[in-house]
Nucleic acid binder design. Structure first.
Lengths: 222, 222
DNA sequence: CACATTAGTGAACAGCTGTACACAAGCGTG
DNA sequence: CACGCTTGTGTACAGCTGTTCACTAATGTG
């Protein structure tokens, strides 16, 4: 990555101290955090020096962009939101007919989880992390995701018999189940296709079970 | 049992350096870890010195009982198993008739979660923690819990139409949903009765939805 | 061009960290 | 009693930690 500017003006780079595109260090620091998390470290155990070392930057640079570790975590949550939105957009574009809706959505989810492993690892960690702000941020992203899902389902008119509240609850449960499958997914090796397929099948069955419940919800309500 | 001369020799305890019942320091260390976790710290960020300080013990004592932090975590997972088993036993004893089964189980779960807050906090953290061994341990406890639940349901003959595999899947989903509600529960203040009741109601609805799905599962299967 | 602002650097400091080592007190067993 | 075993203690050390400070180079704005 980022090799587009190494050809034209490196002859004056005697010092090469700080000529980089703006915000690059910031991204390097956030990327370094994700890299370390991707290597199995927990975000809460990362230190500033360790982070800057991984990013190839001097420790003091950290404070130019973040007040402390929680601050960096919050900005990571914001980027996580972008990842989720990209995933939603792709799902909305790809789902063609209703009968394969669950399978295709789960597939898209799994492929995004594999492509953005570190991001989702960070999300799973943050749910029970030590910063309340990060926790709330992630929870809020999940709520947003669930409400968007509810909107889509309403638009597709597949669940007309459900009240808004019941639909929201159903989507909430769906998102939680998928999020939990996510932690399964992050627990197996990246290339263990067999295990990943098992998780895929289980997740699909979970969602089918939930939607069967939703289809019969009013009649089954006590 | 008591010989005749071991009763009058406690007056030489001038130093009182290390006369404590065996294993007390071990428990103090594990308790200190739980205390810190209960205060909002993440287990992965705890240090040995910090822990021994909290326990009121000298740092070197740590190594008498644990090889490292992961070792301590694993032993905490074992104790977590005991907590879960106690909870299951109480649930089995208290559930009288089938129609209140979900409500009563959720109530028991919530009361145990409040009573053993730090333990469940540790469990929620460990699910996405940095030690694979701890992660697997917790996952294994959850699987055991789910299979016990499946046994109970089979014994109560409430779900005779489900195959063993489908019942296991249903119970797995139930346990996951409850575990996720747990993280909600741990996120609110201990005495915020209103929020806790909201979580209680939502969890009950989740489980009802799942069981409605299970009741119609075969017919809804594609 | 002059200027304030921004983003980078290196040196420094006090304090904390994990771990090793040698020692002491009490225990159970012979 | 003497012995080894376990548990707890104090000291020590090298290395890492977060954070402050003063300095410098490049950038954008007038």
């Amino acid at each position: 990555m980022s090799s587009e500017f190494n050809s034209n003006r490196y002859e004056q780079s005697m010092a090469e101290k700080q000529r980089r595109k703006p915000g690059e260090t910031r991204e390097k620091l956030m990327g370094a955090a994700l890299t370390l998390v991707g290597k199995g470290r927990h975000f809460a155990s990362l230190g500033i020096r360790e982070l800057t070392r991984q990013a190839g930057v001097v420790p003091t640079s950290f404070y130019r962009h973040f007040r402390n570790m929680d601050d960096l975590g919050l900005q990571l949550v914001d980027e996580l939101g972008l990842v989720l939105r990209r995933m939603m957009r792709e799902a909305r574009g790809h789902v063609l007919q209703a009968d394969k809706l669950i399978e295709e959505s789960v597939d898209i989810f799994i492929s995004h989880a594999r492509a953005n492993r570190s991001f989702f690892l960070f999300m799973a960690q943050g749910l029970a992390g030590e910063s309340r702000a990060i926790q709330d941020g992630i929870r809020s992203e999940m709520r947003f995701f669930a409400s968007e899902l509810a909107n889509d389902l309403r638009r597709l008119r597949l669940v007309d018999h459900l009240s808004d509240g019941d639909l929201d609850m159903t989507c909430d449960l769906v998102v939680r189940s998928v999020a939990f499958s996510l932690t399964d997914l992050l627990g197996v090796a990246e290339d263990d296709d067999y295990q990943i397929d098992q998780i895929r099948k289980r997740t699909i069955r979970f969602l089918q079970l939930i939607f069967v419940g939703a289809a019969h919800w009013e009649s089954g309500k006590s």
